[in-house]
Design a protein around this nucleic acid. Structure first.
Length: 675
RNA sequence: GCGCCCGUAGCUCAGCUGGAUAGAGCGUCGGUCUCCGGAACCGAAGGCCACAGGUUCGAAUCCUGUCGGGCGCGCCA
């Protein structure tokens, strides 16, 4: 890891600036450490001389020289070299650096150590199969969790289940009105294979059924009311179908190695009357008030403080005549009929996450996940779990909350933060992070392949939007099936000797890496125009490319063991007394580059979390794999005759392999034994 | 109308808090020692970083404006 060295270097330079120029800490510029474009220029570069040129009224070149003179010996680091342009280039002590990392490079405690952090992700409406858009959410959310844990945070993963919403109501209506299915007929149906696919189609059919005759929407309203008030048989049907669909979703996500700690059911939030308590708090803090007149008379509203986001009929010309009603924008929290809106429920839930609501759920054991990790669910009733499940964990009461939701919810997430601020919870407001990302659409080619693109939808748009209502989209399981099948063919072509089960196991690892890497490598603000062929590719910038490099590295170490009897631990120990010219000479540049780059994992994870840009991890891992592959082709290890050279190369290979394995783990990917 | 996001090679995208010659993948073209596995490697072609101003030692990056595209703004969730 390289961050400790960064800090050390920064401290030394800061100390130098204080002594030489008498700079006060307040006047201290940020000491930026970057990587020179060319390794011959140095390993690191510091640009602080440019920053100081104005205040010190000296040329950057002079300042850089003075700093280099004054800083003295950088024991264990290396030396500083000022350039004419004003850069301070750092040449690291290669041997010392390499010895320190290669022998065992554990990540440091991390900046977020001990901070209880809740990450909410996935949150798919439990009424139909998951699609690629949901996979992007889960891949981002799960990777974020892994990164936060890597930095030392205590992470609790929650998956919100909207079991009382319109989408579930629609499928209940579909079952009853289109299929003539009641509770009794539903029971065998939900356990049949492909139930989530069945609901996918049914949901699309209901949408069309409503469109054909809008009076049919009364069925939806009736069903929705039944769900909210827990009235059977509609509510019983909903309970049954959402339970099974959620299990389908969990199974799909488990294929990608995604697991959770808690399922938060909206129905429990309603039944436990979280809202009642939240409403008291909102009123007491003056966050909401009862609108007396105007078009929102009788509603409890929250003023919206920013000037933006007016609705379409916000006529500015006659605003003077309409009076005060239009002047301050307000968001309805409680309707004039006394029912609460979505934002209201969300505020209650967010308060609970921070332990600020003063109420808690009951909990029930839900399942044991693939890794053995237990999955709990919220409950409205207090039934003690059986003793063999262990005690219920202490859910909620977080110090920080990340909500992984697509960018279309930005407006509402902002209102949420505003409510927390207004309720005198500035810390919670500050630590409520909306991890937003753009949606997944379909490329025209893929939409066409699915049979969705007809003549009138001309290719003026850059992509085709996914629509659950229309049933338009690539189902997650279909994608995973295809990618696994494809991987299995590739494995079979290379390893005819492997038993089928093992081929299958490896294919799953490769397919997972392909999909997860694909979903992570774009920056979050970019719409992914999902293209099936691109996602199924295993060449170039893909997950399998990273795995392949790692497998190659491991193969070398394995051969050293099997053929030459060299154990890795013994090899690493021998480095203390092994000459280092193969690392320090120009011929060792390739090896040195590999080691230095591999050490940057902690720096990269830090940046990824700071910017919430997980693609930087993906890009870094890819660049590292490229570097290794280049090294692999230019620098033989086993065939190398010079023993010192061979040892150092093997050490570099080992370090690469171990850092890359960590990086892959952070992205939820395994390293196959062969591929 | 207002707000947020996006615009970089033929296509899909990187480019961290401004820094040295703007980089990858795919595609195209041309190569790679019977070698630790070719799911790889090396090379070539391909750029007014949408446009116009500004800020400064320095701008793809920051500011303003314009154009083009996406999304959001409800007593829906």
């Amino acid at each position: 890891m390289i961050l400790p060295l960064h800090t050390h270097l920064r401290d030394r330079i800061a100390a130098t600036l204080r002594h030489r120029y008498g700079l006060h800490p307040s006047a201290m510029p940020a000491i930026v450490i970057e990587y020179p474009p060319n390794r011959r220029l140095g390993d690191l570069a510091v640009t602080v001389a440019f920053e100081l040129a104005r205040t010190l009224r000296k040329a950057p070149r002079v300042i850089a020289q003075e700093i280099a003179e004054t800083v003295g010996e950088l024991s264990g680091i290396g030396r500083l070299e000022p350039t004419d342009a004003g850069y301070l280039n750092v040449f690291l002590d290669r041997a010392a650096f390499a010895r320190d990392r290669v022998a065992g490079d554990t990540p440091p405690a991390g900046t977020a150590a001990g901070l209880k952090t809740i990450v909410e992700h996935t949150a798919i409406n439990p009424n139909k199969a998951a699609h690629v858009g949901h996979l992007r959410n889960a891949a981002l959310g799960d990777t974020l969790c892994r990164l936060l844990r890597f930095r030392g945070a205590e992470v609790e993963v929650q998956n919100y289940i909207d079991d009382t919403g319109v989408q579930v109501a629609d499928v209940v209506v579909g079952l009853r009105e289109l299929e003539g299915t009641g509770l009794d007929e539903l029971r065998p149906l939900v356990d049949a294979p492909g139930f989530d696919y069945y609901c996918w189609d049914l949901y699309a059919r209901v949408t069309r059924w409503y469109e054909a005759d809008e009076t049919r929407l009364t069925y939806r309203r009736a069903a929705l009311l039944d769900l909210e008030h827990n009235t059977d048989p509609a509510a019983a049907m909903a309970r049954l179908l959402t339970d099974r669909i959620v299990r389908c979703h969990l199974r799909t996500m488990a294929r990608l190695g995604v697991e959770y700690d808690l399922l938060s059911w909206e129905g429990d939030i309603l039944r436990l009357e979280f809202w009642t308590r939240a409403f008291e708090l909102l009123k007491a803090s003056g966050t909401v008030f009862l609108q007396q007149d105007g078009r929102l008379a009788g509603c409890w509203v929250m003023p919206i403080d920013d000037g933006g986001a007016r609705d379409e009929d916000g006529r500015s010309d006659d605003a003077a005549q309409t009076g005060p009603d239009d002047e301050t924008r307000a968001k309805v929290i409680v309707r004039s009929d006394g029912t609460v809106t979505y934002v209201g429920k969300d505020i209650a839930y967010q308060l609970w996450k921070f332990g600020l609501l003063g109420r808690d759920f009951h909990y029930r054991w839900f399942d044991t996940q693939r890794s053995g990790r237990p999955l709990w669910a919220t409950s409205s009733v207090d039934i003690p779990p059986s003793p063999d499940r262990g005690p219920v964990p202490r859910f909620g009461r977080a110090g920080a909350v990340y909500n992984v939701i697509d960018t279309r919810q930005s407006y509402l997430q902002r209102l949420l933060v505003q409510a927390l601020t207004s309720m005198q919870h500035p810390r919670a407001a500050e630590r409520s992070v909306h991890f937003s990302y753009e949606m997944v659409a379909l490329s025209h080619a893929t939409a066409r392949a699915l049979g969705y693109e007809d003549a009138d939808s001309e290719a003026h748009t850059p992509f085709v939007e996914v629509s659950g209502r229309k049933g338009l989209g690539v189902k997650a399981d279909d994608l995973l099936d295809q990618v696994t099948e494809r991987a299995e063919r590739e494995v079979a072509a290379r390893h005819a000797d492997l038993p089928t089960a093992e081929r299958r196991r490896i294919a799953v690892m490769i397919g997972t890496a392909a999909v997860r890497y694909f979903l992570i490598k774009f920056s979050r603000g970019k719409v992914i125009a999902f293209d099936i062929d691109e996602a199924l590719s295993f060449e170039g910038e893909t997950g399998p490319y990273l795995q392949y490099a790692t497998v190659r590295a491991r193969k070398i170490l394995q051969k050293l063991r099997d053929r030459d009897g060299v154990e890795t631990t013994a090899l690493l120990e021998s480095l203390a007394t092994t000459p280092t010219d193969s690392l320090t000479s120009e011929a060792g540049d390739g090896l040195w580059d590999l080691i230095l780059e591999a050490s940057r994992l902690d720096e990269v994870t830090e940046q990824a979390v700071r910017t919430l840009e997980l693609s930087v991890l993906a890009k870094y891992a890819f660049g590292l794999a490229q570097r290794f592959n280049g090294f692999y082709h230019s620098s033989p290890v086993i065939a190398e005759e010079n023993e010192a050279v061979r040892r150092w190369r093997a050490a570099g290979v080992h370090y690469f392999q171990s850092q890359m394995t960590r990086a892959l783990e952070l992205m939820g990917c395994d390293v196959p034994p062969r591929m």
